[in-house]
């Protein structure tokens, strides 16, 4: 078995940005999988929550950035509240999303698309949160 360097030099800049925005220490994660076991959205995820952290540890950011997982996370904070090592994965997920949508023109949800997503009953709360989460 070959040795793996945690926090490799490739993609260092991008990774540093994610760590800075989230304020989290990914080296604390010991891959116990508790976050994935409790995640209510994991059914629809192509990479499981604990695997997201592992990929970050290995510097394989492309796999994370192109995943469905980061967009299917509902920020319910179950992962963070159950983590025995106090890693807040919800903050990491947010930081990954932000590094993508903060790039000009990359907002995931455009204002013009909002009306088409509404029905008569949808609360304002959903629109405001969606907009905050997907538009920068």
């Amino acid at each position: 078995m070959s040795r793996v360097k945690i926090n490799p030099d490739s993609k260092k800049k991008e990774l540093d940005q994610i760590l800075e925005i989230s304020g989290e220490n990914i080296r604390d994660c010991m891959q116990c999988g508790k976050c994935s076991a409790g995640c209510p959205a994991s059914n629809s995820m192509d990479i499981l929550p604990h695997q997201v952290i592992r990929l970050l540890q290995l510097g394989q950011l492309d796999k994370v950035a192109s995943s469905q997982t980061i967009w299917n996370c509902a920020s319910c904070f179950t992962c963070a509240s159950r983590c025995p090592r106090n890693v807040d994965l919800a903050k990491l997920m947010e930081a990954i999303r932000l590094t993508l949508i903060r790039v000009k023109g990359n907002s995931r949800l455009k204002a013009d698309d909002v009306p088409g997503k509404l029905d008569n009953k949808i609360p304002q709360q959903a629109i405001v949160s969606g907009f905050r989460k997907y538009n920068k």
């Binding site: 209510p40 959205a41 059914n43 629809s44 299917n72 509902a74 920020s75 319910c76 179950t78 949800l109 997503k117 949808i122 709360q125 959903a126 629109i127 949160s129 969606g130 989460k133």
Partner: peptide, 17 residues
């Protein structure tokens, strides 16, 4: 979790939850 703001464009998935 009920799915929260995901209902904006992932209605089927939220329905599952």
């Amino acid at each position: 979790c009920c799915g929260g703001y995901l209902s904006l464009d992932k209605k089927e998935f939220v329905k599952e939850m």
